[in-house]
């Protein structure tokens, strides 16, 4: 795992797997730093939130910055009351799990000026070519631009999280490498990681650069 900036923002199309990547990154970050938080800024989706992994965070001493209403039946777009800790507490290392699409990235606008001013951040676009509205580089770049426009902050890199859920095969991941390269070429941004479920990591670790194994947070029914 590469050295983290103080703030890592994870954005992308909804359903691209941002939350799963964010949760895994927070756990990795905790191995490098003492004071770590994961911030859930989703204002769109009431389900499948970082909060699902709250037990993991508590066990590992990771602070969860999250709306009181996340994963509750209260379906309102609310931000966490302690969200300013992200920019005010400079000793805190943070993974920000931003809501999906440009609508989710709207919540970033309030924090973006301070994040840019401090300039110790990485903003990663999580991409998945198996999602219907980001199947090729063009449509993915379109979503990227919409997010940047809504969030008032620009991407610095790409996380290729192309997957078909628990059914993902090593071939599915290999097939996505070319797509990620095209997104990289057209956006001028590096593919920082290609992520895979840890059960197929060994099949691929010598075939793909910067491969990052993830453990799946959501449980299949």
């Amino acid at each position: 795992m590469k050295e983290f900036k103080r703030i890592t923002l994870l954005c992308g199309h909804y359903g691209s797997g941002k939350t799963n990547v964010a949760v895994n990154m927070a756990l990795s970050l905790r191995k490098q730093r003492d004071r770590v938080a994961i911030a859930d800024l989703d204002i769109v989706n009431p389900y499948f939130r970082s909060k699902d992994s709250i037990a993991d965070f508590q066990d590992n001493g990771i602070r969860l910055i999250c709306s009181e209403y996340a994963n509750s039946n209260v379906d309102i777009p609310a931000l966490p009351q302690d969200m300013y800790a992200i920019t005010d507490d400079k000793e805190l290392s943070v993974i920000i799990d931003v809501g999906g699409d440009d609508r989710g990235a709207l919540a970033l606008g309030r924090l973006a000026p301070k994040i840019i001013e401090e300039n110790d951040y990485e903003m990663l676009m999580v991409i998945n070519c198996y999602r219907p509205l980001t199947r090729d580089a063009e449509s993915t770049i379109e979503v990227m631009r919409e997010i940047e426009y809504a969030g008032h902050i620009k991407f610095t890199g790409i996380v290729n999280n192309s997957n078909l859920g628990v059914a993902t095969t090593p071939e599915d991941v290999l097939k996505s490498v070319e797509y990620a390269r095209e997104v990289s070429e057209q956006s001028g941004l590096p593919v920082v990681y290609t992520t895979v479920n840890d059960n197929i990591y060994n099949d691929l670790c010598d075939k793909i650069e910067n491969l990052l194994p993830l453990s799946l947070q959501a449980r299949p029914v």
């Binding site: 359903g15 998945n128 198996y130 999602r131 219907p132 199947r135 997957n163 078909l164 859920g165 059914a167």
Partner: peptide, 13 residues
Amino acid sequence: EKVLMKGNEAIAE
């Protein structure tokens, strides 16, 4: 080819 979809998206598509 397979795509990864939410049930709601599958209805729409």
